[in-house]
């Protein structure tokens, strides 16, 4: 009986895979490329412009430019423009750092109705939590490994 059901399900899933319309691959890839690339170019323009200021070096300019991208994305999220771009961009809009900002601010706004403390503050990391947690854990691991290697090398 279970075999029969497993077989039925397998046939059905194969059939579903066949009939489900897939995202127009070429189309969505081109859009992801264009929007993702454009975001990086904007970041680069900001970085080069900021570096023109005498007190800002290239490294600081990179930090400032990503901060500007993040802020812009959050404002766009607030005004409800961002998800219209994102619908076209796909990976092109969530992979750059502003996608991270959008995920954070959209969750913050969404759960505002449950209160600033019990809603916004709790759920802000709903979507980006995995990025933060994995980032901390694995960067610490990486830092420890690099440190160990250097200790062993200096012996």
């Amino acid at each position: 009986m279970t075999d029969k059901i497993a077989k039925r399900n397998k046939t059905y899933i194969e059939y579903v895979e066949k009939v489900s319309p897939s995202t127009n691959a070429t189309h969505s890839l081109i859009k992801a490329f264009a929007i993702g690339g454009a975001t990086c170019v904007i970041g680069e323009i900001l970085r080069n412009l900021l570096a023109l200021a005498p007190s800002i070096d290239d490294k600081a300019a990179a930090v400032y430019s990503s901060v500007i991208l993040v802020t812009a994305a959050i404002i766009m999220t607030g005004t409800g423009v961002y998800d219209n771009i994102a619908r076209h961009g796909g990976a092109g809009s969530f992979l750059p750092i502003r996608g991270f900002a959008n995920a954070m601010s959209s969750a913050a706004m969404e759960f505002r109705s449950e209160g600033l403390i019990t809603g916004t503050a709790v759920k802000m990391f709903n979507v980006v939590g995995p990025v933060i947690v994995n980032g901390i854990v694995w960067s610490a691991a990486s830092g420890t490994i690099v440190w160990l290697v250097s200790v062993i090398a200096s012996l």
Binding site: S20, P21, S22, T23, S28, T77, G78, G80, Y82, D83, I85, A86, R87, G89, G90, S93, F94, G99, N102, A103, S105, S106, A107, M109, E110, F111, N126, V127
Partner: peptide
């Protein structure tokens, strides 16, 4: 949407189905 999926303003693509 907020119960089953993502926040409203979160930019994500859905599959055509």
């Amino acid at each position: 949407e907020r119960q089953y999926r993502y926040p409203l303003e979160y930019g994500c693509q859905r599959p055509p189905y």
